[in-house]
């Protein structure tokens, strides 16, 4: 193809290699699965924690969250789920929102929502576990 017009001796394949997103475009795919595996493991202790909290009042709940392993399990679960849902919702937005500006705004709002929910939950757990 147009070999006589090009001064380069590189083949067409060599010119396009490493261009495009193929070397980094799978990071969301990978992280979605990474966080999914994490939550698959964490779901059992998280359900146990939630069941432990049934019937307890605020003091009881605070007491349970003051346990270091419980706080860490909940923190891990919140980080994994917030990350997972951020990626998932972005896929949904990219599937259905075709207007570029609305898409950008939606993706941004999605990021803000997930970060806000995660940070609020993390703050609450840290506050309870540190006994402040």
């Amino acid at each position: 193809m147009n070999a006589e017009k090009s001064s380069s001796m590189r083949t067409p394949l060599a010119r396009v290699r490493s261009l495009g997103s193929s070397h980094s475009g799978t990071s969301d795919f990978w992280r979605q699965r990474l966080t999914a595996v994490a939550m698959t493991v964490l779901i059992v202790p998280v359900i146990v924690v939630v069941l432990m909290l049934i019937g307890s009042n605020q003091a009881g709940a605070k007491q349970i969250f003051s346990s270091v392993p419980i706080a860490i399990i909940m923190l891990l679960f919140i980080v994994a789920s917030a990350w997972h849902m951020k990626i998932g919702m972005q896929v949904v937005i990219e599937d259905y929102v075709h207007n570029e500006k609305i898409k950008l705004a939606s993706v941004m709002a999605n990021n803000f929502f997930c970060i806000a929910v995660a940070l609020a939950s993390i703050y609450a757990i840290l506050k309870m576990s540190s006994g402040v």
Partner: peptide
């Protein structure tokens, strides 16, 4: 998040 914040 509401539940955790309330507990805290």
């Amino acid at each position: 998040a509401w539940w955790l914040i309330a507990a805290a």
